[in-house]
Write a protein that binds this DNA or RNA. Sequence first.
DNA 1: CTGTTAGCGCCTTCAG
DNA 2: CTGAAGGCGCTAACAG
Lengths: 347, 347
Amino acid sequence: MGKERVTVVDIARAAGVSKSTVSLVLQGSPLVNEATRAKVNAAIRELGYVYNRSAANLRQARSKIIGIVVNDLTNSFFAELAVGVDEVVQSAGFVQFLANTSEKLERQREVIASMREHGVSGLIISPARGTEVGDLAPLGAAGIPVVLVVRDIPGADVSSLISDNHAGAVAAVRHLVERGHRRVAFLGGFADTAVFEARMRGYRDALQEAGLDTSETLTIGSAPSRAGGVTAIEQAMMLKERPTAALCFNDAVAFGVCDGLRARRLEPGEDFAVIGFDDVIEAKTAVPALTTVSVDPQGMGERAAELLLKQINSGRVEPEAIVSPVRLAIRQSCGAAVGRRMKEISS
Amino acid sequence: MGKERVTVVDIARAAGVSKSTVSLVLQGSPLVNEATRAKVNAAIRELGYVYNRSAANLRQARSKIIGIVVNDLTNSFFAELAVGVDEVVQSAGFVQFLANTSEKLERQREVIASMREHGVSGLIISPARGTEVGDLAPLGAAGIPVVLVVRDIPGADVSSLISDNHAGAVAAVRHLVERGHRRVAFLGGFADTAVFEARMRGYRDALQEAGLDTSETLTIGSAPSRAGGVTAIEQAMMLKERPTAALCFNDAVAFGVCDGLRARRLEPGEDFAVIGFDDVIEAKTAVPALTTVSVDPQGMGERAAELLLKQINSGRVEPEAIVSPVRLAIRQSCGAAVGRRMKEISS
DNA sequence: CTGTTAGCGCCTTCAG
DNA sequence: CTGAAGGCGCTAACAG
């Protein structure tokens, strides 16, 4: 067992060629004779050579790694995203740096800095709440392509890939109105994100279009979590004129709303429809017995990765803003059964 | 805007010191005067210097990155794991390479190779099914610490951190027996993993201890997925003497079993208890209305990362096998209500 | 098609 | 406490 690292010169010597030839083989260059290539590869295998990317990166001033930073990996939505990114990134011969910020700006700053130091070729970011253009500016200045996903940052000079939240909200409300709902609440979320703003605007626009009440009282904010959903529906049900349906800020809130509904007795025959955003695996399976209609962006990870790779390969960093269409997915038909079930369970 | 990369010599010049001084400052060495340090830091900020880790890694022949490879990031269990690892790894000044293998050995080989090339300091692996000792041997030979999580690979000369599957199964079965269940099935999973073997053995041991039937017929294998659970419970319910409770190979199977139970009518008053393994967030929320008792390892990611860091820092690579205790977590009380609910829903 | 030469940016002796 | 020199392993010119 040789203690020392085996390098290109070792394998060059073993194969009886020069180290640049080895280098060419390593990079799969077509400029090298088939026989030579075979000899080199044999030597590589024999000596157990492992390519040293640190050296290559240093020399080339770039590395085949792309970074992905998400604000909450615990949320299945982002886990899915990361898997999608990983898939295309791996097949393109890159590796993925994954960092989770847990919505902490400080952490985000650190990981972005760290990624720069590692010389990432590009970055996919679902920014933490409160991220400002200044946080991304250095990347752009350094010529590192960035693709923003899920949350846009107005004014940032980078690409973005977000879902059409406005259209999604409009479609959801239309769906509810078609089914006869006249009092539709908007539950959950904080007003400080662009995502919230877009969904809320879609909600209002669709109500107006249907000539319905857009009064503030039917809009109840809360943490964008399951617990927040419970709080929000409780408040909503204390209103003089209760809503009969709710569009929720996201899937977590929708689950919480369902929890809240289960916990209270609805009047016999009373029905309640719930719609959430950001539907992913969990949402598809978690509340099978309640009606949920979901607005979910498909394959966002893959698309983001492709967009990023395109920019990396073209060398050009020309920001591109893509708004991804959403679809309404109906999991289970509405019906008075919902009201009945509530009673049964709470008894 | 200078086109050229700013390096240590630039900032050395700007600060009026030598480059080695700068290097010391960069590493937070205490050997440098406070005033000098301040000057250097000022220059760094002013020139927008970014540390080049490729160069440092090349020079030092190691990198502050640790790799984590999981067999299914889509499974919340592993997402949680990755988050846990990320947390401790980040605070230790490392960054995390995350790769998802989707149970594909070929992919796993690629990513492990890639990580070696990047000079990772250590690796946390939840191996894909079918991984052999040979797949990990080169890492050990290269002195790269490896911590196996979730799934052990007998004979591999690396550390491992797995839950006490045997004890978990025993506890689960005892719990069921105490509640009066006499016919307990073991549903789901494939017999080709050590995990399966341990859980199955615990199941058998506990039954024997209680003087109950351990006949093969109550053991029904299936894919370790939700769909597999549905298949398994359907088979189980076609038995002459039906089981009244099931211990499931994992949480996904448990969900599937619940699905299957919902889909069929139980006799009035008939009860059925379901227990799953690998409980994580999803499990805690997905089937709130059914009785589930869960066996879940806590903080495995953090512990694995700590173990790995310890090995990295000590330089010593002395494999250590840790069996993590599990706990039974009862989500909701058992009761005849389950049988009633089934009827209601399926009608 | 293959060999030679010259660094990439940093860290580490070893003197001062 | 700071400066001067050398080289980590690789690739990018350029010659042959």
